[in-house]
């Protein structure tokens, strides 16, 4: 997959959809292309967050530790981004991500990501929008969960 294809993929990630093409190209160029085989771990819950990952091909499982071992909470498919929360708020990873099939990802380093946010207000607003969206979903889920009790 070439740089220009990656840029095409990035454009389809909602978080990056509003960003101008040259910026995206720069982001893709300065990011590392990394491949994993099925079962390899991208990062573990509790690790320090140093990068976000955009899935280019393949699938990945998101696992959360529990008393009875890791539980799969979600599955990531191409064009999705994972790990961006930890690099935004300097917290440790909230879940483990494991390749479920041969996986190609674009690894965006934390400092590059933050630098790009600083320089591109469109991107920052877009991220804010996505986060707010997630928050309202989570709130709605919470309300549902409470009322279901």
């Amino acid at each position: 997959m070439l740089l220009k294809d990656e840029v095409g993929m990035l454009q389809r990630v909602p978080l990056f959809s509003g960003i101008e093409l040259t910026k995206l190209k720069l982001l893709a160029f300065t990011s590392d292309r990394v491949s994993y085989s099925a079962g390899q771990i991208l990062f573990r819950q509790g690790d320090e967050g140093d990068a976000a990952y955009v899935i280019l091909s393949g699938r990945a499982d998101i696992l959360v530790d529990s008393d009875s071992g890791p539980i799969k909470v979600a599955e990531m498919v191409p064009n999705s981004i994972v790990g961006e929360i930890a690099i935004l708020c300097n917290s440790s990873r909230t879940a483990t991500v494991r390749a479920a099939s041969p996986l190609e990802v674009l690894r965006i380093r934390k400092d590059h990501f933050l630098r790009l946010m600083k320089e591109s207000p469109e991107m920052t607003i877009e991220i804010l929008r996505v986060l707010a969206d997630r928050l309202s979903h989570t709130t709605a889920d919470l309300i549902d969960a409470r009322s279901a009790k």
Binding site: T22, K25, L26, F29, T30, D111, R115
Partner: peptide, 16 residues
Amino acid sequence: IELFADLPPDHQFFQQ
């Protein structure tokens, strides 16, 4: 040049 011409010379992307 397309990628980097607009960046200030001390930008960390230049390491790449």
